[in-house]
Nucleic acid binder design. Structure first.
Lengths: 226, 226
DNA sequence: AACGAAATGATAGTAATACTATTATATTTG
DNA sequence: CAAATATAATAGTATTACTATCATTTCGTT
């Protein structure tokens, strides 16, 4: 994807940051290198002291942008879902047949992420790996309901809703458009993890891709009712 | 389920514990109350000091059974998968038609958990809630591959494999039996979470259950090929 | 170039965590 | 009843995830 739509800023829930990291070079460095570090060492081992060292800045300066490492994780995952919603919209918009739209949507949601040069300070491929490995930690907490009220998970829920609307448009009689949408989106992440770490329970290889699997699953579910 | 098969011990990977908690009253108290506490406060806030206080025992004594709270979590989730495998086997065994077996398996894997009085020191309903909220934390770590080599995730993988075998028996031509199996098992947990915390992206209510949703999904995927 | 404000950096400190190590006291077993 | 084993008590440690305070640098405006 090249700069068809440059300068589009991905919107992230404002409660996740104290100072907008997109508004300064230090902020952008925090984003760039937190992605690299979390990918390298995992979210548990990652902390603001290590991040400070990596960007030759100070722990205390990072706390001016994010009040906790949890909120930084929520920021990063929200950014990812916002970005993915964008991909979904622009790649399906011009298609005229609803079947093509649906198939394209499944492709966007289940394919391996490619880098998008529009956002130079964010490595989308690494961010996708972080989302695979750490996304669920952003909501599997005792504070989910509070965080949810603050709108932290809106970007994720918007992706689910958009996809479910395509499902309903393709098959208005289907009873579970939202559940099917969130199953595909969530399971696509899980299946990537399984493929890398629990190989004995995966069927994916060069010929058999998640996109193919989920496309069959969705189309069969919608084509033949119950 | 009553004591049809009493005294069947659920096997848990031996590397998860230092001393078998089933072998003593203190060990059983650790299991009973760790489940209650983790459910109450979440895995992050839970620690062995609090558990010690809850069972009027000492932190140091708990460390004689489990070398870390992570391994205790792996123990508990493994126990759950081992128990679920049991339910799967005994509830499908006597059925003769493969379609009935498959449908029953989906029911066992996607229904709301009921208490099983065979294991008095384990509350399966609470344990199921823990699995919904904390299961992914047992493998989304930098040590997954080591833990996997130690066999920590065998109970989970065995459930996936058994279910995938039923899928293949029902439809030998299907290309993704393992992926479909792990999608259903994993997504069933996720959908329960979504239903409780992200209501706006759920379609479940009294009339529309996860079991119904997943049954349609699987049968359509298998009945109508691609 | 000068001034004030804002941003960043440096340093110190804190309560809690996830343990380890050691020694003491119960409890069980032969 | 002694020895072995299990459990308890206590202390200690490095690290974490921050907060607080003050110093310095950078920036925009005149």
């Amino acid at each position: 994807m090249n700069n068809l739509l440059s300068n589009i800023k991905i919107e992230v829930p404002s409660g996740t940051y104290l100072k907008d990291p997109e508004s300064s070079t230090l902020g952008k460095k925090i984003l760039t290198h937190s992605i690299i570090l979390i990918d390298e060492m995992g979210f548990e081992s990652f902390n603001f002291k290590k991040l400070g060292a990596a960007i030759q800045s100070n722990e205390s300066s990072i706390y001016r942008y994010f009040e906790s490492k949890h909120k930084l994780l929520v920021y990063l995952t929200s950014w990812y879902w916002g970005w993915l919603e964008y991909q979904l919209v622009i790649e399906t918009y011009s298609l005229t047949s609803i079947e093509d739209k649906l198939k394209k949507a499944i492709e966007v949601l289940t394919r391996t992420t490619k880098n998008d040069n529009t956002y130079t300070h964010i490595n989308e491929v690494l961010l996708n790996i972080i989302v695979i490995n750490e996304n669920s930690k952003s909501y599997l907490t005792k504070d989910v309901d509070d965080d949810n009220k603050e709108g932290f998970f809106m970007p994720y829920k918007r992706v689910v809703k958009r996809f479910s609307e395509l499902i309903s448009e393709y098959q208005p009689d289907y009873d579970y458009p939202l559940s099917l949408a969130s199953t595909v989106i969530q399971s696509a992440l899980h299946q990537q993890f399984v493929k890398d770490h629990f190989k004995t329970i995966s069927n994916f290889d060069k010929q058999h891709t998640p996109t193919q699997f989920f496309t069959d699953l969705v189309l069969n579910a919608l084509t033949y009712g119950k």
